[in-house]
Write a protein that binds this DNA or RNA. Structure first.
Lengths: 164, 164
DNA sequence: ACACAGCGTTTGCAATTGCAAGCAGCGCGA
DNA sequence: TCGCGCTGCTTGCAATTGCAAACGCTGTGT
């Protein structure tokens, strides 16, 4: 038996590190591990211990739980994309707010996917036939954001004004 | 400096095992580790890897998270909101996106609180007048929304502030 | 051209993990 | 008294972790 999910956690660490725009050596120093070892971990050649994993999580300033889940060390009692469920379950939000949060979240997801494609190698813009289109966001989104966005299209900026 | 918190987790495992009224060998078999090794773990002579820890947790039918907390590998922080927890746990989001979602969510919360104070007489007089109390949303918010809101601007992204 | 600094990777090697086998002690039935 | 089964513990030993040192590569001055 080999390394079932070790590769995935290595990739995940590398993704997070590159997203943070820090070098391998920097993260290694921040995490308190040696750079060659971190290199091997990222490429799935080594199976880091829990302690190392935790230090890396700290170095990355990410949730250690997320890392453990990625490593398959915690049963996914918290699915990685439970955000929508949690939003739906929050009774303190209005329906519109809920929709806004979900829309933003899903648009972030799309962004992530686009970035992944970009990092593969292809730099040319995608506008071909996709399964689901790239519509910016529904009306509700923009409508709900108007009170926050200080850069409105109509030019007038009015924030936090509670109409009574 | 060999064993910082290993002893505590060993004791914890032993407690849980004895509480379950199973022998060391039984737990070892259930967890898929050797009995001598489990013995050494329980007495704090060995520092088990994350994988072993997870297997022991399974053998004990206890939460792996509880075990990791005991091992000092996860901070035992109680999250204030399920939505925020879910956002934090989502591995597909960038740190910036996470912050944006959380900011929006919390601003919604504030809105809700304001409405509640308006409708119910029982309002506690908190902040009198904060200087930045009325801030619409941090820069990150607007920056992240630019691709969605029809507000063309500079797409410059500043680094996040390091805060311990 | 050279030296310098940074990047990620490769290479031995000490230290450690984790296991198979064996050891000592306890309770029980013949 | 044995043997049997169970408890947990100790002992070597292969495999692995994790590191220090060195490697090749790229960019940047001088």
């Amino acid at each position: 038996m080999a390394l079932p999910k070790v590769g995935s956690i290595g990739e995940y660490i590398r993704e997070q590190r590159q997203q943070a725009k820090i070098s391998l050596r920097q993260l290694a120093a921040a995490a308190g591990v040696s750079n060659p070892y971190l290199s091997q971990i990222e490429r799935g050649l080594r199976k880091p211990s829990a302690e190392i994993l935790n230090q890396i999580a700290k170095g990355l300033r990410i949730s250690a739980q997320a890392l453990y889940v990625q490593a398959g060390l915690i049963e996914d009692r918290e699915p990685p994309s439970d955000v929508i469920t949690a939003i739906r379950a929050d009774t303190n939000l209005t329906e519109r707010q809920r929709q806004v949060l979900i829309d933003i979240f899903e648009s972030f997801r799309k962004e992530k996917r686009a970035e992944d494609e970009q990092t593969s190698q292809n730099a040319h813009p995608r506008h071909d036939s996709g399964p689901d289109d790239e519509q910016p966001l529904p009306e509700e989104f923009l409508a709900a954001l108007e009170p926050y966005a200080a850069t409105s299209r109509n030019g007038n900026v009015t924030q936090e004004t509670k109409e009574g």
